[in-house]
Simulated scan of single mutants.
Amino acid sequence: MLTKGGVGFLLVLTLVFGLQFYGAVTVSTLYYSSKPDIVGYGFGLDSMGIAFAITPVPIALMISAALADRFARRFGTRTALQISAALISTWFGGLIVFRHTLSAFISMGFVGGTGIGLFVAILPALVISRARPEDSAIAGALYNTARTVAGATAGAICAAIMSGMLISGSKIPNEGAFITVWSGCIGAGVLIFMLVPFLNKLGGKAYQPESPEQVINHPVRESS
């Protein structure tokens, strides 16, 4: 299933996405809470302020996830995934550019959330579509496991970066540490964008039922 079925290629995309998304969540939250008058960056928000500031991401995520199937059917699966990767990379690029402007920094969450919603709605469906019906549960479990592994790995990598780039004479990360993490996330998005065109070649084809009893409904189509 991982090699001939093409599920393995899709799990690679999942891992890259997980490194990108889960690794930046804590870092971005920390930036919101950092006090600019003390460390020279951040917005000094309290817990309630951070909660409101990150709200655009889940709102946009829910909307785009709900519309992802229709979007993929209209423009194609590969195009939808590439747009997703481009939006997420734009989000992290915006965090770097607008890191000193709170309103713009927050508004970039709508861009990122839209990209994330498309990705998390489309990719699991592709994973399931490339497995036989009797293997669909295994494929889904592998997808969830890949996301978990990516999140744990991303947390460790980001922690290493944040602890290795400190303000002189302190244990506080410098601004460059945040920029480094966000830049890495941009690179991950670019990598996904470049890999997606190989979806049908390396990702295999969707399972083709042999009889009417094996027909299943695929929420996204396979054409570009």
Rank of each mutant, 00 (worst) to 15 (best):
R74L: 05
E210W: 14
I161L: 03
F98V: 06
G155F: 04
Q208L: 01
W91R: 11
V181Q: 10
K205M: 13
L87G: 02
A72G: 13
V181G: 07
P124G: 14
T145D: 11
Y22D: 08
G204H: 11
W91L: 00
G112I: 04
I59C: 10
A146Q: 07
V16N: 10
A80M: 09
L191E: 07
S84E: 03
I59Y: 05
L2A: 12
E175I: 09
G18A: 13
I179K: 07
T77K: 06
F193R: 09
S136I: 08
S129V: 10
G189V: 11
R147T: 14
G76Q: 01
I38P: 13
V190H: 01
E134G: 01
P197V: 13
T79E: 00
V120M: 05
D46Y: 09
R147M: 12
G204A: 03
N174R: 10
I172M: 13
A86F: 06
S103C: 00
N200F: 07
P209H: 12
T180Y: 11
G18V: 05
P197A: 09
A159P: 10
I179A: 14
V7R: 10
N144I: 04
Y143M: 04
T180Q: 02
S47V: 14
S47K: 14
G117T: 05
A160M: 13
F178K: 02
R99T: 03
A156E: 10
I128G: 03
V57K: 02
